[in-house]
Each structure stands twice: as C-alpha cells, then as structure tokens.
Design a protein around this nucleic acid. Sequence first.
DNA 1: CTCTGTGCAAACACTTTGCAGCTAA
DNA 2: TTAGCTGCAAAGTGTTTGCACAGAG
Lengths: 157, 157
Amino acid sequence: MSNRGEEPSQSENQSQGKMDAFQLRCRKAGLKVTPQRVAVYKALIESKEHPSTDVLWRKLRKTFPNISLDTVNRTLLTLAEIGAAFVVEGSGDVKRFDGCLESHQHFKCLKCKKIIDFHHKPFDSITVPRNISEKYVVLKKTVYLEGICDLCRKRRT
Amino acid sequence: MSNRGEEPSQSENQSQGKMDAFQLRCRKAGLKVTPQRVAVYKALIESKEHPSTDVLWRKLRKTFPNISLDTVNRTLLTLAEIGAAFVVEGSGDVKRFDGCLESHQHFKCLKCKKIIDFHHKPFDSITVPRNISEKYVVLKKTVYLEGICDLCRKRRT
DNA sequence: CTCTGTGCAAACACTTTGCAGCTAA
DNA sequence: TTAGCTGCAAAGTGTTTGCACAGAG
C-alpha cells in the first residue's frame, strides 16, 4: 500500500477497517477478493471526486500499470450491485461512482461537472408519499441539487 | 383525462396555448421557430414517458418522415438550454427529457427504466442549507426516487 | 438577403461482449 | 481443481461535429 503522502496511522486503521468490511461483503456475495477488486475499491473510497470509470482507471494505472479499463468498469458495476458503491445521480452525463456509504447529498455544477458532497440532516428523513410506497419498492431516496459552483460563477466561463 | 392525441376542443386550446408560449420563448431567446422545433416540442409535451432522443425521433418520424435524429437531439438540448424542457435526472443511462414544466418528482424503475411522475407537495418546498446556497447558485432542487416498479416486481424478471 | 437551422455522414466517446488464459479459494 | 476473474480486442450504442443547402426573419 503506497499511501500517497497522505494518511497517517489513524486513518490507515479506518481504511483497513473498511477494507476488511469490503472483503466480507464480497465473500457474502460470492465474489472473489482479487487484487484488482481491492485496488478499485480502495481507489474509489479514497477519491473525493466521484470519479468516472475512466478517471479512476487513469489513477489506478499509476500503482497498478496493467489493470484494464474493462476491469475497472466491470468492478465498479459489480460494486454497485452488491451495494458497496453507488452510481451518482445526475442529468445524463458519463456514469460516475461514489464509494461513500454514509448518508449525504450531492450538488452538481452544470458547467464544470464537479460534484460537491454535503449533508443536510433534514434530507435524510424525507418521507415517500403513500401512493408511491404502496405500489413500488423504493430502494433509494435522493435529494439532488444542480447549479453553478463558486469557481465557475467567478470565471463566468 | 388521458386525451393524448389529436383530440379536439378543450385540450386542443390548452395545447395551443402552450405552443404560443413556446414560440414566444424561442423568439426571446433569439431562436427561429422552425417546423422541426415546433414538432419536437409538441411531441415532447405530448409524451408522458420521458423519452430519450431516439424514442422521440421514432415517434416523430411517423408524422415528419424526414426529420433527422440529430435535429431531434440538438433541438432537445436547445430546449433544455432555454428552459423549455429538462434533462431527467437518473443514474447514468441514456439522456431522457421532460417537457413538463410543472413541479413534480420522479420515481425510476431500475429494472425496466420506466419513469413515473408524482407530485408530493412537501417536496416542492425543501430548503437548501445555508452553506450551499451561500456559496453556489442552485438552479434546480430535485427529489428523486429509485426502486422497482409494480410490474417488474410481479414478473420478477 | 442574411444568418440560423437542418440533414447527412463521419467521427467520437463510452460501454459492453466474447474469449482464452489466469488465479483465489 | 475449478468456478470465477482479468485483459485484450472487437462490436455496440448513444452523442457530437463539419459542412452544404434550405428556409425563417
């Protein structure tokens, strides 16, 4: 584990905990714990930028030169299936992923496509109307904001 | 209340009103009112299915055999730019559009990709936390639900 | 008349698929 | 050992672009 200049011991432990939980989750789902999977998952949870397959792949290649784009893509889709990651909601651009499992919301800049995380407690507890929850299985409730971020507003691009 | 075709009187008037408003909006934005644009807009607001470019194009060709896919796509993007339509939020599939300007929310079935509209008043009035609204320009607030629809659950596909 | 919008075709970017060899369990 | 995973290459899909002509203003 190269530990790119960041992470001292404490977060290293946290990270380790997450990795253990991840391995457990894989096994439960009947998935093998391969170096690639571990690397993809690790890179994802260390990314704060909600990377697309491509972005994560470029990053991974620095420490894992042989990993293929497909593997990254397939792994991310698999992670989403077993609930270890999410596909970020958004208005129809490239698929982007989020490895943060804690409750939070997203603001997406329409200009630079940056996604900003925030957590507003009231949004955690929104209640789905009866006529929906009776008829459909609601798996995810999301509050999602779009607009222009501070930097894009300034540079008025 | 379906009346979703070329029905007469009342809804015809409503529809006409919408078309007038649309022309006005185009002119204000400096866009020409071409037959294609009108047709695309009309087809969009008559669709309840939040169509993708492709779906809308197939539909349009029945009454407008020469219209090209690009035109439909470009027109939809243009409509989104001038605020006459929206790109539906969702987790990274094909771009889909919505011509309904009234406040409403979406539930999307992860299996069949169907999008169900609903309107839950409390969702209209969610308030964006200070730290976001102070820093960013929030153009759109969305509550978005994902899950499995009634039909997909039954047929357990 | 002018300048935008359209249609066509080619280019692109992103995903998915098929398969042979590899590897975790 | 063996089912599942990876890497490569090729095929899809959906979207964008460049350009000549047509048509709205």
